[in-house]
Design a protein around this nucleic acid. Structure first.
Lengths: 271, 271
DNA sequence: CAAAGTCCTGAATCATATG
DNA sequence: ACATATGATTCAGGACTTT
């Protein structure tokens, strides 16, 4: 199913993964369809070309060096992000919310773009990793966090979903604060190919998406992920009784996501 | 002492608080003088005109609604921030570092400005407050964090100070991560006028500045705070055996800072 | 079978010296 | 400017192996 097919049948949008460029596909979709969007763009890491090798075990660190993370400049990156966020804004229902994720490399580009486009930020949420990779050379602090920005599509938006009981459950404190302590994705959850290599370099943990979806959507709500990767958003949405639409440009990722989501066993819905 | 006087005698710059517009004063200073800059600009909170009132308590919430936090638009705010950061970049030594602080309201404006001006981010540091004010409306998460950005003045900068022993001491984990758990400023540390009102609405805790200064400067280093408020940076610098230059446009704040710093008892220097 | 020990790896803008 | 070699040392989680 491609974007053209989809545009011809917009009413059937549910529990689908589309293989194609996210901007093109989004432009073919009708407006105001999404209750929630998970926006996980490339981080534009600008890593050094040389590989980092561990001294003790001589294994190399697999830094992110993928075509989709290469941009000529911040200006090019900004253009890409803003084009995407404009389309997302059109696709969001008036009461819909967006979650963006990033690190210091890119999150300020995303945050400023959101504000410039008229989105209204509700929270920044700190994903505080329990098992971040240490900084061996000890020339700066170990980066143990990623930042999520939660926003509505404009300042006057009303009626968005916020599950305050869940919010409290997720918090490290008695009150529902914006810091979430969670491990990174590893073990059996991490998708690997037949040779044991990870399918996607930056697969998100399901626990993170579970918090996002439980906090800000209701059962039956419609979740969109325009850069779906290996489909964590779709897998969690399916498990929690939410509908989803994923878009992914990389055929390998899309195929892995499709296979993964087919295997999901839905949990009993607790509204 | 004003900016003109200062510019005429640039070599005497140490342990001084200057009352004046930070841009004007900075423009009168010689370049490459600062080992460390603490940059704590207005947060551009965009609070509603009417004061928020707690639904269960009869007291008004003490939002920040000061002349110095009023900007017409993001564009005006950005211009102000970028003008300041350009001057700071000139004032930083090649090995100097800058610490910027903010919340989601403004930190992305600051972060994007840093990157656009060629600064190179070393870390974002999450100040995770132990005693944040709970969110009484329960329509979003309680904001328990502020974000610090630590950066060098350009990508190739070398030789900046990083005390890895201190870094580990500050961390919640065994490794030196970028999340710092600290209470907000309160109690005797909080400066109050004769009528018991707080002198400054957003006085930073000394413990936060102590971490910044110990982590990224050596005894005798020169610390600049161009928007010094009531002088937390200067007080901590003085206590820890670092030199300082503070700039503050508000006469009340500047006077309070001067009085405060005069009372500081230096601690024995441990290099 | 349980417990203990080994090995690998994770969105990383990680140094310095020499040619 | 780039490429290459060298050097010095972090932890948590999970998979796997050994006791």
């Amino acid at each position: 199913m491609d974007a053209v097919t989809l545009a011809a049948a917009p009413t059937g949008l549910t529990d689908t993964i589309l293989h194609g460029d996210c901007l093109e596909v989004m432009r073919g979709l009708p407006g105001e369809i999404a209750d929630c969007v998970f926006f996980d763009p490339p981080y534009f890491l600008q890593l050094p070309k040389k590989r980092l090798v561990r001294w003790n075990v001589k294994t190399a660190v697999n830094g992110v060096d993928e075509p989709w993370d290469r941009f000529e400049s911040f200006a090019h990156y900004d253009t890409f992000i803003r084009d995407c966020l404009r389309e997302v804004q059109r696709l969001l229902k008036p009461s819909g919310t967006i979650w963006c994720i990033g690190t210091y490399h890119n999150i300020h580009r995303v945050g400023a773009a959101l504000q410039d486009l008229g989105y209204w930020i509700l929270n920044d949420v700190i994903w505080f990793k329990t098992n971040a990779m240490p900084n061996w050379l000890q020339v700066r602090l170990t980066n143990a966090t990623e930042t999520l920005i939660w926003a509505v599509k404009d300042r006057t938006a009303k009626g968005y979903t916020f599950d305050k009981v869940a919010a409290r459950e997720f918090s490290m404190d008695k009150i529902a604060t914006n810091v979430w302590r969670l491990p990174i994705c590893s073990g059996h959850e991490r998708l690997r190919d037949v040779e044991g290599r990870k399918v996607h370099p930056t697969q998100k943990p399901e626990a993170l998406l579970e918090r996002i979806i439980r906090l800000s959507t209701k059962p039956g709500d419609f979740v969109l992920d325009p850069m779906a990767g290996v489909g964590t958003t779709g897998a969690v949405a399916a498990r929690l009784g939410r509908r989803h639409l994923l878009i992914e440009a990389n055929a390998n990722y899309a195929a892995a996501a499709r296979q993964r989501i087919e295997a999901v066993v839905p949990e009993p819905v607790t509204p």
